[in-house]
Design a protein around this nucleic acid. Structure first.
Lengths: 110, 110
DNA sequence: AATCTTTATCGTAATATTGCAATATTAAAA
DNA sequence: TTTTAATATTGCAATATTACGATAAAGATT
């Protein structure tokens, strides 16, 4: 026990849950919002922006990258991180879809 | 160490992260999608639908409720759970907002 | 080549999450 | 009022996450 029982759910459900998990931390939300705000996106800038040590930020960036939420481009010595628009579009569609379906529901019992 | 450093982030960032965390599990995604699909929403039905024991489902429902993602209405002996439309509307707006801002960006470096 | 800069990885301690058996709670039914 | 049914809570073991110091890796600078 302790580990998530992913095998019993659909691939789609696991994918959404994984993406949500990558966003389930204020530091990672802050990173996404910072990348949305700035035009350049050097890793060092993100480390300076956040109240966390460099290895911690690096770990958060790795999780966002694993979830396809950001992309990393090597630029000589440093690395340029940016938002992966495709994944955010997917999320947007998911939530818009839910809202549309909620709007069509006849009776929401509670 | 080990605990999330919430104090250094904005209330808004913490709120979004908390809501994401509540959705960061395939069982809880499955519950939300089930509630979206059906018109009645008795707790027992959800327990039958999921491949998890009753106490585990009850715990997941509690987390969704704490995050204001669902509402629970006592109906005699049983409890009727439904999606909280306001929170899902908030999420939808958040991701639509991000997509709009992404569309306006001139140069996405990567 | 030696050094500096930037980012990643390792190791580890603290804390949180997941899952369930056992049990408690509460309301309906008999 | 005893029993049954539905849901919540407790307690605990297994696993995952968070954070960071120390260190590694790799390109830039001197």
């Amino acid at each position: 026990m302790g580990a998530t029982k992913t095998t019993h759910f659909t691939d789609r459900q696991n994918k959404i849950a994984t993406t949500m998990k990558a966003l389930a931390h204020p530091a990672r939300i802050a990173i996404m919002e910072y990348l949305l705000k700035v035009d350049t996106c050097i890793c060092g800038d993100i480390v300076n922006e956040l109240p966390l040590a460099q290895p911690t930020v690096s770990q958060h960036l790795k999780e966002l990258k694993n979830a396809d939420l950001i992309k990393g481009d090597i630029e000589g010595n440093s690395i340029c991180y940016c938002i992966n628009e495709k994944t955010l579009e997917m999320l947007q569609k998911y939530f818009v879809g839910i809202s549309v379906r909620l709007g069509k529901k006849k009776n929401n019992c509670c």
